[in-house]
């Protein structure tokens, strides 16, 4: 049975968010359901309803928001069990290794990371900065790298200490 009105719009948003390869902006979502630009509030209401439904314990995915963009993701507690089904990660393995080293030793200078990881990690740092997973501040002739709030949000952490890298690993 084809839904109409508000139900249809919410289903359309869910379908769009499921299919999209990247977070969708409020503007794009409004366009998908044919809402006028001044009806952003309506889009936000639908997204809020959808988020509430997905937040129920029996649901495996959740709606996330970065600034004005929205996306669906697997809930952190189920991710390890199903991760192998999607072999493509949104952070490549080399970049993730660089991020792990920064997270474990945050704050850490870029030169220290380069010493440990090699010159290619300049590119990794650039990508991580672009994704707002780390931030950099000038530190003499190099940069001091810190993890960001976005990093904590991405990994579902309250603070960096929750990561608990063992002392042996921290060598």
């Amino acid at each position: 049975m084809i839904k109409t009105g508000r139900k249809r719009d919410k289903s359309l948003l869910e379908a769009a968010l499921f299919l999209a390869a990247k977070p969708l902006q409020r503007k794009e979502l409004a366009k998908i359901i044919g809402a006028k630009s001044h009806r952003y509030q309506y889009v936000e209401e639908l997204l809020s309803d959808l988020a509430d439904e997905l937040s129920a314990a029996e649901r495996g995915i959740e709606l996330q928001q970065i600034e004005k963009s929205y996306f669906l993701q697997v809930k952190e507690e189920y991710l390890d069990a199903v991760a192998y089904l999607a072999p493509y990660q949104d952070i490549s393995r080399p970049v993730l290794r660089t991020l792990a080293m920064i997270a474990c030793n945050s704050p850490i200078t870029q030169s220290e990371i380069v010493r440990a990881r090699g010159n290619k990690c300049y590119k990794h740092v650039e990508q991580l900065l672009n994704r707002n997973l780390i931030r950099a501040e000038k530190h003499g002739r190099t940069l001091m790298l810190h993890v960001t709030e976005e990093f904590l949000r991405y990994f579902g952490l309250q603070n960096i200490n929750e990561l608990q890298f063992s002392e042996m690993e921290k060598e």
Binding site: L19, A21, Q73, V74, E76, L79, D80, A83, A86, Y88, Q89, D90, I91, R93, L96, R97, T98, L99, A100, M101, A103, C104, A116, R117, G118, Y154, F155, G156, L157, L163, F165, E169, E171
Partner: peptide, 26 residues
């Protein structure tokens, strides 16, 4: 479309161990 899944904390920890191993080898 092939979905790109998000990375979990376990992946991050595993990546850290790998990074340390590679760094030592290096």
């Amino acid at each position: 479309r092939r979905p790109h899944r998000q990375v979990s904390v376990t992946d991050l920890k595993r990546a850290f161990v790998d990074a340390i191993t590679v760094s030592r080898r290096r």
